[in-house]
Simulated assay, not measured.
Amino acid sequence: MTFSLVARCEKTGMFGVAISSSSPAVAARCAYARAGVGAVASQNVTDPTLGPLALDLMAQGMSAAQAVDEVRRQGKFIEYRQVLAVDGQGRTAIHSGPNSLGIWTQAQGANVASGGNLLANDGVPQAIVDGFLGATGHLGDRLIAALRAGLAAGGEAGPVHSAGMMLVDRVPWPVADLRCDWTEDCPVGAVATAWDIYKPQLEAYVQRALDPRAAPSYGVPGDA
């Protein structure tokens, strides 16, 4: 009931995940990323332990493919799971268990992997990959473009209700973690709007965490 992508920015080394689903709060269960390590989406009858496991394995030096192979070995009921990973060199790997729901498929490109289940058609992940590779600008912009391309290609078999985007870059917390946990409207559009608002402030929020003395004005009453 989900379509997603994991990606790496070749220029900056930033990692990101973008995801949408008919289920509520999909990003809370399925999106994982760690600065300097990689990004993982764990979906389809979701086991939330698999994302952190794959990141830990890549942090120990495994490639995306090696980490996904080890997730297959260690994971429970792995025939029900989809796991997508990208590592620090832009290598990607995907596991899609044979018990994934409905129409399910996957696609990969340089620095990007996409997968989905209960899809409207089997071309959606490739459309997401193509959308990412054809977009320019900030990694967040490219993730949003890719997710929109997946929607335009058909998306899920039914309406989607939640979406999210996570970005990591140089610091040990997500520099962006934007979610729409439920809407009857388009959750991808809601996350895109949040990104448009958040993007100009992203670096300021990082600077405030690292050294508030050097941060831009907070823009609140009484702020000198």
Rank of each mutant, 00 (worst) to 15 (best):
L151D: 11
P221D: 13
L118K: 01
V175H: 07
D185R: 12
G134H: 07
I128H: 00
V160R: 14
P174E: 13
S162V: 05
Q201R: 15
A192I: 04
P200K: 11
N99M: 12
A214H: 11
G134Q: 09
D130H: 05
V112Q: 02
P212R: 13
D181I: 06
L101G: 02
V191C: 04
G219K: 09
D169M: 01
G158T: 14
D196C: 02
P216E: 15
A194I: 03
G150T: 01
I197E: 15
A107Y: 03
G155F: 04
L202R: 15
L143E: 06
E203R: 13
A127C: 08
V112D: 00
I128L: 08
D169N: 13
N121C: 09
L147I: 14
G116M: 12
G219H: 10
Y198E: 13
Q106S: 14
S100H: 01
E203C: 02
V191H: 11
A113M: 10
P125L: 01
A194E: 13
M165I: 09
P174G: 12
G140N: 07
A190Y: 01
Q207E: 15
T193G: 13
R170F: 05
R179G: 03
G164F: 09
P159S: 08
W173A: 13
C180N: 11
P125S: 00
L178M: 06
C186N: 15
Y218D: 10
L202E: 14
G189K: 04
Y205D: 12
N117K: 11
G115H: 03
A190I: 05
R213I: 05
L178K: 09
D211E: 12
N117I: 12
G109Q: 08
D196P: 00
P216T: 07
N99H: 13
G115S: 12
M166A: 06
P187W: 05
G116Y: 05
G137N: 05
R148F: 03
I197D: 14
A163F: 12
C186A: 02
A149H: 11
P200R: 07
A194N: 04
D211V: 08
S162H: 10
A149C: 12
Q207G: 01
T136M: 04
L167P: 00
F132H: 09
R170V: 12
I144Y: 09
A145V: 12
Y205I: 01
P172Y: 03
L139H: 03
G109V: 08
G140V: 07
V112N: 06
L101T: 14
A149S: 15
G189D: 15
L101I: 15
R142N: 04
R142W: 05
A127Y: 01
I103C: 11
N111K: 02
W195T: 11
A190L: 05
T136G: 13
L101H: 03
R170N: 11
S162F: 08
Y218E: 12
V124W: 06
A163D: 11
G150W: 11
P187H: 07
I144A: 08
A145H: 12
V191P: 00
I197G: 04
A215H: 07
G102W: 00
V220W: 05
S217Q: 09
